[in-house]
């Protein structure tokens, strides 16, 4: 590696830098399986640079390089487009047997082919490991008349159907609202925005009555009281928000609804390489950097490996299809 090149960019390229720090660090992860990467490893990110899943991929990449988990350089490759469909299609079509390719996958990559039959499904790749689950919370504006979820639920139940406007920041939020309104037995009127940020902005501006969304964007607002969290759609409370009850504590029987994020390899990779990547990814999940990342995102750690992950995804697929009213 030459110094002048690195100085110039100061990392105008992450991957260039990852290459330089990764090369030459041979050894370390060999012992556990017969296979090891034979050339540069390509981490495909099926989303544009800068989003939540892109950040996760970059954290994974950083851990792999810094803890010298693989004996070859790692190159990040963003293949954005079509809710993950382009990146998935790239791996499924032109990297089908290549054990030196790994790809980031998440709930969106599972939902896209349900809505758009032309997109490739997760059956065309081999899931390796899930890292985390993104949670959903019920939010209202800070000055809302609803102090508790119970007050809001009572009001929703007493008014005609679809009276309440909730902002959403994407298909997953719409699905969460569907889960919620089924439990209530009353339809909520979803106003769809393009991102969690826009959904939050609409709530802050008082253009909608409430929202269900991932806590990440809302944490700063919660601290200042601009936004109030009324309920959690998972079994346990968050340590960051000990006062916010779960829906089950309120007495509403809502099934858990969470979005997963993990890693996969191409479909026809041989078992030795799959086992190798399962080992590496478990080390990544155990790293303090990953734990800190998940905690910062107010998400749930959920290491699910190999066959368990495949089974988990099949169950999710069924749930999503049912929520989107698109039976297989």
């Amino acid at each position: 590696m030459n110094i002048s090149r690195r100085d110039f960019v100061l990392g105008a390229s992450a991957s260039a830098c990852l290459i330089s720090s990764g090369s030459g660090m041979l050894g370390s992860a060999f012992a556990q399986s017969a296979w090891a990467p034979t050339r540069d490893v390509e981490l495909v990110i099926p989303f544009a640079a800068g989003g939540g899943s892109d950040l996760l991929a970059r954290v994974v990449g950083k851990i792999i390089v810094e803890e010298k988990l693989i004996p070859q350089p790692l190159v990040l490759n963003n293949r954005p487009g079509g809710g993950g469909a382009v990146g998935l299609g790239y791996v499924a079509a032109s990297r089908r047997k290549d054990p030196n390719t790994i790809i980031l996958i998440n709930g969106t990559t599972q939902i896209t082919p349900i809505l758009n039959p032309s997109a490739r499904t997760l059956t065309e790749i081999q899931p390796i490991m899930n890292f985390m689950l993104d949670d959903f919370l019920l939010f209202v504006r800070g000055d809302s008349k609803y102090k508790t979820a119970q007050e809001m639920i009572d009001d929703i139940k007493s008014k005609p159907t679809k009276t309440f406007n909730f902002s959403t920041g994407g298909t997953t939020d719409v699905m969460a609202i569907t889960v919620f309104s089924r439990a209530l037995g009353k339809d909520i009127n979803p106003v769809n925005f393009n991102s969690g940020g826009e959904s939050l902005t609409a709530l802050l501006g008082g253009h909608v009555d409430g929202t269900i969304g991932n806590p990440l964007e809302f944490m700063g607002q919660l601290a200042s009281g601009k936004v109030r969290a009324l309920g959690v759609f998972r079994d346990t409370r968050f340590s960051a928000m000990p006062d916010v009850p779960t829906m089950k504590e309120i007495g509403l029987s809502v099934p858990n609804f969470q979005m997963w994020r993990g890693i996969a390899v191409p479909k026809d990779v041989d078992p030795a390489a799959q086992a190798y990547w399962e080992g590496i990814m478990q080390k990544v999940a155990a790293s303090p950097t990953m734990k800190k990342y998940i905690a910062d995102n107010v998400a749930t750690e959920a290491p699910i490996v190999g066959a368990d992950f495949v089974a988990f995804l099949a169950a999710q697929e069924k749930l999503y299809r049912e929520l989107l009213a698109k039976p297989a």
Partner: peptide, 10 residues
Amino acid sequence: SAAIALLLPL
């Protein structure tokens, strides 16, 4: 946006 995203991990 691409430039910032690329620099982020560093």
